[in-house]
């Protein structure tokens, strides 16, 4: 079995040294609707440390996805700041934010979102190609990651030839391709049944055990219990830890 030492082999730590990987301070996000505005997120403050495994839980519409999008640098806060590895990501412009995502954020979506025309291996190669890695290096690391998620024998298969659980494991491997600082997942088991969801949950546990920092948004009780920390949200605020 491939170990996380292999997976993190080429990892280079970036940014200013800090105990916390993620520092959210007084985060707010408003959505404007003509005159009115919805405060989807209000005064959210928390830290996530190195090798933490955090689950964000709460009722539908409480702002979990909104928070994760801010941490993933695909959205900008209306108030407050987010620092990831010491970088103020909330104020980044598109070009900088894109490059930051490529090198520091691993995203896992509820609906997997693999490129349908690419094979499992090519899907994992995609972020590495964007980062300018050579073909040989991409293939070697892609195979390593596929083996790590237990799909070493499926590298040439397209997403349509894989089950939902398998697609999600390929998507997790893709998220790890460039050694991100954090792995973010929004309802990663939302489209899966208990058994295949269970495979994803144990993969997360193994990843965290091998040193990956994970933040997961979920309604899934089993997944939430597997995390080491749970952040409870209601109406755009953190109500309990």
């Amino acid at each position: 079995m491939t170990t996380i030492e292999d997976v993190h082999r080429s990892d280079v730590r970036r940014g200013t040294p800090s105990a916390a990987v993620v520092e959210a301070r007084n985060l707010g996000r408003d959505y404007k609707f003509g005159e009115e505005s919805i405060h989807a997120l209000k005064g959210v403050t928390f830290d996530v440390g190195e090798k933490d495994y955090v689950a964000v839980v709460g009722p539908s519409g409480c702002g979990k996805s909104t928070l994760l999008n801010l941490l993933g640098v695909v959205d900008s806060p209306s108030q407050g700041t987010v620092r990831i590895r010491g970088h103020d990501v909330g104020s980044m412009r598109d070009r900088e934010a894109t490059s930051f995502r490529l090198h520091n954020i691993g995203f896992v979506f509820q609906r997997f979102y693999l490129m349908p025309t690419l094979s499992a291996l090519e899907n994992i190669e995609l972020p590495m190609a964007e980062a300018g890695k050579k073909k040989g290096e991409r293939v070697a690391r892609g195979r390593e990651l596929l083996a790590y998620v237990g799909l070493g024998h499926r590298e040439r298969h397209r997403p349509s030839q894989l089950s939902g659980g398998e697609q999600q494991r390929v998507a997790i491997a893709r998220a790890l391709a460039n050694n991100p600082a954090i792995l973010l997942a929004d309802e990663p088991t939302g489209e899966l049944d208990a058994k295949t969801g269970g495979e994803v949950i144990s993969l997360f546990e193994r990843l965290n055990g091998d040193g990956t920092t994970i933040i997961v948004v979920t309604h899934d009780e089993v997944l939430a219990r597997a995390a080491h920390r749970r952040i409870h949200m209601r109406d755009g605020s953190i109500v309990d830890e």
Binding site: V74, T98, F100, Y113, L126
Partner: peptide, 15 residues
């Protein structure tokens, strides 16, 4: 959808 996912993964606009 695919294009936006690529953007989320860090693929640049120009690419």
């Amino acid at each position: 959808g695919e294009i936006t996912v690529m953007r989320a993964l860090g693929v640049s606009r120009s690419h």
